Simulated assay, not measured.
Amino acid sequence: MNLTALIVTWNRLSQLQHTVKATLALPFQHIVIVNNGSTDGTASWLAELSDPRIH
């Protein structure tokens, strides 16, 4: 089965970090994260992620 997780965020970096960690522990083939214009460092943190499932 091919499963995709969709995470949408806006200025909730701390919560996003917990959510991504928990999501990576699950058997998703793709994880799509939509940063809706955050100004709290979210874009920088997302740029550091290297898991190939994250888009």
Rank of each mutant, 00 (worst) to 15 (best):
T42E: 03
R53T: 04
F28D: 05
H55N: 11
V20D: 11
T42R: 03
V8R: 05
S14F: 15
G37I: 07
N35P: 06
T4W: 04
W45C: 06
Q29S: 07
L16T: 01
D51L: 04
V20N: 11
T42I: 02
A47R: 10
H30F: 12
A25P: 02
V8L: 12
N36C: 04
A25V: 00
A25R: 00
N36W: 08
N11A: 02
S14H: 13
Q17N: 13
E48H: 13
Q15M: 13
P52Q: 04
A47F: 08
E48F: 13
A47M: 11
H55D: 10
A25D: 09
T39H: 15
S14G: 13
A5P: 02
L6H: 10
E48S: 14
S44N: 14
S44G: 12
A43I: 09
S38N: 07
I33F: 08
G41E: 03
K21W: 06
L46G: 11
T19L: 13
T39M: 15
L3N: 11
A47C: 05
H18K: 15
N11M: 04
G37W: 07
G37L: 13
N35H: 05
L49V: 01
L26W: 14
T42W: 04
W45D: 04
S14C: 11
V34M: 07
D40P: 01
N35C: 06
L46D: 05
V34I: 15
W45N: 02
